[in-house]
């Protein structure tokens, strides 16, 4: 299995991104690298917009419009990753009729790079997830479900590294505890592992072995609970090395992403954008080579 995906930029992008400096007209000139993350969560089979007479979300959402927004952003910055935090399945007859085939095909057409396993992915059973992955041209990432004794064994990955304009972006997935939420006959022999311990291990691998410049967690744990139950805010505080936690499950609408301090007091962003594809989250990372190797090289002519 490919541990590293090199993201090819489009033809217009190549002209912009090929040089070492990598400045596009949209990139802030003071920065060397610009990575854009677009993300959704809990789209729940909402392929079409809500009806115009809908009481809460009239005429909002829809995969077809989301595609145009994604393309608009990619034209601005070809160095864009499109991510999802799970529960693509269940919520409209599209899922009842086609079992997730359409959801995964459309996410592939929209250019998604990775998603994770939400609890509703299990609604037609774990074997159905395995069957529908045939339609997915993106990676399904989860690091805290032991799937060795299930039909998903070998079909998902704990993490994936994407190399975008010379920047290594490590992405791993975390799923919610299934017991009491999903019936056992649906998740079968899936074993839930402690998300915090798993996250620490994943960060270690991504930083030390894979030399990632950015680490992103796709979480379906939920944004925040009053109980001791693990959530994205607790995960952020109990770990370090993660730059961005893209959350789901609780259908949380946030006015803006929440900057949080991790275990070492460094910043980690926690975000979630409601549900049903009403919103897309956009995070722009600007990066610089602080050691400035290129300049050092030219100055060592002596």
């Amino acid at each position: 299995m490919k541990r590293r995906h090199f993201i090819k930029t489009t033809s217009t992008a190549a002209a912009i991104g090929v040089s070492g400096i990598g400045l596009s007209s949209f990139t802030k000139p003071q920065h060397q690298k610009h990575i854009t993350i677009l993300h959704t969560n809990d789209v729940h089979s909402h392929i079409d917009p809500f009806p115009k007479n809908h009481s809460k979300y009239p005429n909002l959402g829809g995969a077809s419009r989301r595609f145009n927004y994604i393309n608009h952003v990619k034209n601005e910055n070809p160095n864009t990753l499109i991510l999802d935090a799970g529960d693509a399945f269940q919520g409209t007859p599209y899922f009842n009729f086609y079992g997730g085939e359409l959801e995964y095909k459309i996410m592939s057409k929209l250019g998604y790079h990775a998603s994770t396993i939400g609890n509703h992915e299990f609604d037609n059973g774990i074997d159905n997830i395995a069957a529908q992955l045939e339609h997915a041209q993106f990676d399904l990432l989860n690091a805290n479900y032991d799937l060795r004794n299930t039909s998903l064994n070998g079909l998902t990955k704990p993490y994936q590294v994407f190399e975008v304009d010379g920047i290594n972006i490590g992405i791993f997935g975390l799923g919610i505890e299934l017991e009491g939420l999903v019936s056992k006959d649906l998740y079968k022999e899936t074993k839930y592992l402690d998300p915090v311990e798993v996250a620490k291990d994943q960060v270690e691998i991504l930083k030390q072995q894979e030399h990632c410049d950015l680490v992103i967690c796709l979480s379906h744990l939920g944004y925040s609970y009053n109980s001791k139950k693990i959530d994205d805010l607790k995960l952020a505080k109990q770990t370090h090395g993660i730059d961005l936690i893209i959350g789901g499950h609780t259908h949380t609408f946030l006015d803006q992403p929440i900057p949080t301090k991790n275990a070492k007091g460094n910043n980690v962003i926690v975000n979630q954008v409601g549900w049903a594809g009403i919103n897309v989250g956009r995070i722009d990372f600007y990066l610089d080579d602080l050691n400035n190797w290129e300049n050092t090289g030219t100055s060592q002519e002596v």
């Binding site: 909002l60 829809g62 419009r65 990372f285 600007y286 610089d288 050691n291």
Partner: peptide, 22 residues
């Protein structure tokens, strides 16, 4: 090279009818 994040911008975009259907 060792790249570090030096700036972050965030925003949320509502998918409404201002975006044409594809």
């Amino acid at each position: 090279k060792t790249y570090k994040v030096t700036e972050i911008d965030t925003k949320q975009v509502i998918i409404d009818s201002t975006y044409n259907k594809s």
